[in-house]
Amino acid sequence: MGLREKIMAQLSAMQPPIHGGCLCGKVTYVCRATPVWSVNCHCHSCQALSGAPFVSAFSVPAQSFETSGDTVSYRRSAESGYEVVTTHCAACGSRVHAQSKGATHLKNVFASTLDDASNFKPVSNVYLSEAAHWVEPPETLVSFPKMPHA
């Protein structure tokens, strides 16, 4: 099995509908499409926003993603120059998803918010050049020193 087939097999393990939500349960979501990518992001922004050495997430087509509940957004500039909007629960502050203005066709959903994460497996590590020195990055199918270009 080639790399592309391995990636597709890992991603297709997460079959829709995919449900999740925040810590307090006031924000919930449903994804009605299979993820197109999954990742461990080691960038300094994800580290600072999460308080963890990396963040795991998966990307789905934006039109397949629906949320309910009160949210607040945090906006920042990414290394690419595009604005990234991170959406949090207004009550508990959990980060639920993010979206880059450079890829508005995708929603990046934080895997820690999944109701059932048993089929989630990141296919990639990104920003390994910024990885915390005290953590060994998890094994993935592909890894990148920065964010790869689509």
Rank of each mutant, 00 (worst) to 15 (best):
S80L: 05
L141N: 10
A78P: 01
F110V: 08
V109K: 03
I7R: 07
V27G: 05
A150E: 13
F65K: 01
Y82Q: 07
A103P: 00
A90D: 02
A103R: 13
V96C: 04
G81W: 06
G93T: 04
K6Y: 05
L23V: 11
I7H: 09
Q63E: 15
N119G: 01
P53W: 08
C24A: 09
G51A: 04
E130V: 10
V72E: 08
A78D: 02
A62W: 02
A90R: 10
A98N: 10
D116H: 09
G2V: 00
H19C: 03
H44F: 06
A78W: 01
T86N: 06
T86V: 11
K26P: 00
A111R: 04
C31A: 15
T113R: 07
E79T: 12
F58I: 11
L106Q: 09
F54C: 08
T104K: 14
G25L: 11
L128P: 12
H149C: 05
P17H: 04
A91F: 04
A48T: 14
S56G: 13
H19Q: 11
H105V: 11
S59F: 13
K26H: 15
S59W: 09
S118M: 04
S94L: 03
V72D: 03
V126E: 01
T113N: 04
G93Q: 02
Q10P: 00
A91D: 14
P35M: 08
H149N: 13
A9N: 14
T67V: 15
A57N: 10
M14T: 08
V135N: 02
A91P: 00
V142K: 09
C46I: 08
Q15F: 00
E5I: 04
I18T: 05
G51L: 05
S38E: 05
Q10K: 14
E130K: 13
F120W: 06
W37D: 09
Q99F: 05
T67F: 07
A98K: 03
A33M: 00
Y29D: 07
V126L: 06
Y127E: 00
P53D: 00
P137G: 08
S64K: 01
